[in-house]
Design a protein around this nucleic acid. Structure first.
Lengths: 190, 190
DNA sequence: CATACCGGAGAACGAACGTTCTCCCAGCGA
DNA sequence: TCGCTGGGAGAACGTTCGTTCTCCGGTATG
């Protein structure tokens, strides 16, 4: 019924369910139902639930990073590439099933009890910060700007998740414009 | 051994343990051990674990709000009162047991499965935003500034939690200064 | 057509946990 | 001293869940 490999089906189902309900509220039986992969096969593919959690987070990182890269690539100027981050957030927040950042959620739920989860989340956020820093560098901004822009993006994600509105993306973008244009005055500003 | 009421001891223990390990990783037996209140008494004080979770979050909200109010009150000018938020974050982040915002963590863990938790977290964040909005209004800032400053504070909390460093407080404060001084130019600026 | 094997469904097992129950002791009044 | 009451410790109970095991049907091969 599905030409993805069983492994892919399991990891997609895991990412979807873990994101929707929280990791500890999804059992292996739920995973079986959502993926269509039998328990026996599931345990031949992964040694334990912890392993599924780990691989699902790693796969989600790839997916998210690809979204981000695509959004950035679609913009032309260095300034627009920085702002493209917030436009991507705006589109993401408007999805019906948006429930915040899976990595932030997983960190809060399991970061203190599953060191591997904490490690993966840290790496994910470090990657994001590195990407923003690269964009800022390409725009010629001083080093202090990138962490500020990353903080705005993080704050927008949690604010949007909790409030249930998409406003935070627009607000973060407007703040980012001010920070960018202060750090890096545009020659053509009116 | 302790003149707090049993109820207070339970809620303090609950807030401490839930924050440290995540709500679902703390059992009623752990709560008993940490609070010194017997299981029987515990169940006479609270009808269920869900009730303990709810009351502990509400109590934590009071505590956090009092911290914030104290930090704000210690500053003199409207501008410094806005920035006092980030100074409080800096002090908080440097605590050994800092592990992010309990409300954000709880929302990620249980927000989709315990509506009461989602509701309390939303109310907590709405209170924070209202506080910031009040400070911004007192400073004479346009309405758009307050949400931006709140987003910076949220982002600083998750960034500090995940990275394990305190840098985010300083970075958020610097960004806030730029936003404030752009929205509200100081007459006495050099 | 017979047989060996692969994989699925889901029962079984053990641990963890929320909640309740039993047993026991300390204190107190007659 | 004797019984009564209240409360603590922690055993007991039922459920959930991670993980493994059993049974069974389908398929390929001779």
């Amino acid at each position: 019924m599905d030409d993805r490999t069983a492994r892919e089906r399991v990891l997609d189902a895991a990412a979807r369910l873990y994101y929707r309900r929280g990791i500890q509220n999804v059992g292996m039986v739920d995973l079986r139902a959502e993926s269509g992969v039998s328990l026996k096969r599931l345990y031949r593919l992964f040694p334990s639930k912890d392993s599924v959690v780990e691989q699902a987070l790693l796969r989600q990182h790839e997916t998210w990073d690809a979204w981000l890269a695509a959004a950035i690539d679609a913009a032309d100027t260095p300034r627009d590439r920085l702002l493209a981050v917030y436009d991507m957030l705006a589109r993401w927040f408007s999805h019906d099933d948006f429930r915040g950042c899976m990595f932030i959620n997983s960190f809060g739920e399991l970061g203190s009890v599953m060191p591997r989860v904490a490690e993966i989340v840290r790496a994910h956020k470090a990657d994001f910060q590195a990407r923003v820093a690269e964009l800022a560098r390409a725009a010629g901004a001083p080093a202090g700007l990138a962490p500020q822009l990353a903080i705005l993006a993080e704050g927008a994600q949690t604010t949007a998740a909790i409030s249930g509105t998409t406003d935070a993306a627009r607000q973060a973008r407007q703040a980012a414009e001010v920070l960018i244009d202060t750090a890096l005055p545009r020659p053509d500003a009116a």
